[in-house]
Design a protein around this nucleic acid. Structure first.
Lengths: 132, 132
DNA sequence: CAGAATCCCCCCTGATACTG
DNA sequence: CAGTATCAGGGGGGATTCTG
């Protein structure tokens, strides 16, 4: 959608838009679930795996690493055999809880409307496609 | 990460967690940018394409269709040749602006800390990998 | 226990070309 | 102008295996 020749500067870019910057952090499949699992305090690796339905070790580790890299989660290692590793939100990570809860609240109130809208939409447009 | 035999019910699942439900709506690459483009009122299809940096017609249409299906965006067609089509947020869509702004505010305040954390993290772990 | 490493597949996305 | 159709590439994510 570039306009060669005439150049109207687009004013909404992923790089600039704050919405996108944060989504770049939390829009992975498991990230918010991991943050959610940490909201009540430190928790061990294995316990997180059990709490989050359907997550694999690979994705749990990968998600935690990313959150660590972003400074939102801290890793605590107690050297022992076998080792004891727990994770917790950093102070920065905790500041993210508030906007996430707003999103959660929005969902509680409005999500049924979204589901209803989807059903209506699908019914409306299945009619035109139903016989192939 | 299933525990066959012993079954502790996991308490955090994508299906149940409100965080994930909403992200299911907004976590696409372009969705929030499209919503952002609509926050000041109705706007035509072509104008949106010009405003949102880097989006293709295909992704713009696809994103708008999804938002329409979710009941967050309305399409207005003025029959003419060539046709005039504009889009706007529905009342439901407008309710989403508030939590999104919270996210935007979080970004304004804290994103530099995330960037700093990333640089530190990368420096720390590049040291151990730098000579292959 | 807490990972790392590997293989593989699906789907999101981009580029291009065509249409009413 | 406002789309649709088709093809091709890359990366996120899953399943499995191995390790200190």
């Amino acid at each position: 959608m570039t306009t060669p020749g005439l150049k109207k500067t687009p004013d909404i870019s992923i790089a600039v838009c704050g919405y996108s910057k944060t989504l770049e952090i939390i829009s992975n499949k498991w990230t918010v679930l991991v943050i959610y699992a940490l909201e009540d305090g430190a928790i061990r690796y294995g316990e997180m795996g059990r709490r989050i339905d359907g997550i694999s070790k690979k994705m749990l580790t990968q998600t935690l690493r990313q959150l660590e890299r972003d400074g939102l989660v801290q890793r605590h290692l107690t050297p022992a055999i076998p080792p004891i590793v727990s994770y917790s939100l950093t102070p920065l990570g905790e500041t993210l809880l508030k906007p996430l809860r707003e999103l959660n609240d929005w969902t509680k109130v409005h999500y049924t409307q979204v589901e209803t809208a989807r059903q209506e939409y699908d019914q409306t447009y299945s009619a035109s496609t139903e016989n192939h």
